[in-house]
Amino acid sequence: MSRTALSVAEDAFRLLVCQPAPLVFDGRPVAGLPDRLLPLDELRTLLVAGAGSEVSDPVWRTLAVRARDDGPAWVVGAVGVALPGLTRMAARLRVAAPGMADDIDSELMAGFLAAVRTADLVPPRVWLRLCWAAWRAGDQARKTDSLLELPADVAVGSRSPRRPYGHPDIVLGRAVRAGVLTADQADLIGATRLGDVLIEQIAAAGGESGSVVRMRRRRAELKLVAALHRGDLALPAVRVGGRRG
């Protein structure tokens, strides 16, 4: 199964809570939590086991404040604690759009993080309001069906390309040289599809939303698919034993 924003976040969270120095939450001020410092993975287990709003509200108020004020580790920590709920929501959203897992997961997490950074933490049911923001973002990604449509001139039947195309990085390079893609478009596809860079990282660096960057990538990918089906990026014929192969 391909890695999505949620699986990458889980990996980062596991590193954050590993011994001997896991990131911890002070459970002592929160009635209903153990009266001690709790590693965030233990806190997550306690919340998943069934915590009422009298516990979850102060926990999520604290997590949101720490994420806003105390740096990237607490942003990862807040997402990690939320991951069981986010993963369940993603699974439900993917049922109607199984081919959009990457987009759904990314937008779900982006919506959750936006709410963590901006939501009013005073009213009750903080966790549910954060979840609702995440669900809306993921649901919007699921509805972007028009972005998945191939151009009209792309054949949808099964056929072999005229020549082998080679490694994906080489294909992207040929697409740039042929004028099918710009260098920036090729870099975006390569970094996010072939590398370990998340859409959210590129969006943050450019001061854009994840959905804008994702739409730009999808348009570039559709141009690349169209060129491949037309044979525009096929390797040139090779002479073998004096004959054209």
Rank of each mutant, 00 (worst) to 15 (best):
D139V: 11
L108A: 01
Q185E: 15
M100P: 01
R129A: 12
G190M: 08
A133E: 06
R125W: 15
L121E: 02
L172A: 04
V126L: 12
D145M: 07
K143R: 11
R125A: 15
A91V: 06
T192V: 13
A97W: 04
E200K: 03
L148T: 10
P123C: 03
A82V: 10
D145I: 03
R174C: 09
G85P: 11
A137D: 10
G173S: 10
A133C: 13
A110C: 12
V79F: 07
A114G: 09
V154S: 13
G85T: 10
R163D: 11
G85C: 12
I199P: 01
G85R: 05
V116K: 04
A175C: 09
V81K: 00
V171F: 02
D139M: 11
A73V: 09
D187E: 14
G157W: 04
V79C: 07
G166F: 03
A82N: 01
P168W: 04
T87E: 15
H167R: 03
P123D: 04
V126E: 05
W127H: 03
P151W: 06
D187G: 14
P72M: 01
L130W: 05
A183T: 10
M100R: 04
Q185W: 13
A175I: 01
V156W: 03
G190L: 01
L93T: 05
G99D: 03
G173V: 07
D103V: 10
D120N: 00
L147N: 11
D103L: 13
T118L: 06
D196E: 14
T192F: 08
R94Y: 13
V75G: 12
V154C: 08
Y165Q: 07
I202W: 08
G71H: 03
G111K: 00
A155I: 06
A133I: 06
D187A: 15
R159Y: 11
R163K: 05
L128V: 14
A134M: 04
S146G: 09
A203N: 12
M100F: 14
L121F: 01
P72S: 05
A97E: 03
L121A: 00
S106C: 09
M100L: 13
R177T: 15
A90E: 07
D187S: 14
A73I: 02
D120Q: 00
E107W: 06
G77F: 01
T118M: 01
R142K: 08
D187F: 13
R88A: 13
V154Y: 06
V180S: 00
V76D: 09
Y165N: 14
R88F: 06
A82D: 12
V122M: 03
R88I: 10
V95E: 14
A178H: 05
L128C: 13
E107R: 06
G138T: 01
R94C: 15
R162N: 04
A110Q: 07
G166T: 03
R159V: 11
I199V: 11
W74I: 05
L93R: 00
G71K: 00
R163V: 09
Q201M: 12
A97G: 06
A90G: 15
I202H: 10
I189R: 02
L181T: 02
I189L: 15
Y165I: 12
A183I: 08
L194Q: 10
R193Q: 14
T182P: 05
E107T: 05
V76Y: 02
E200H: 14
G166S: 01
V126A: 14
P84L: 09
V76N: 03
R193C: 15
W135S: 04
G77D: 09
D184S: 10
G99W: 00
G166C: 04
G190C: 07
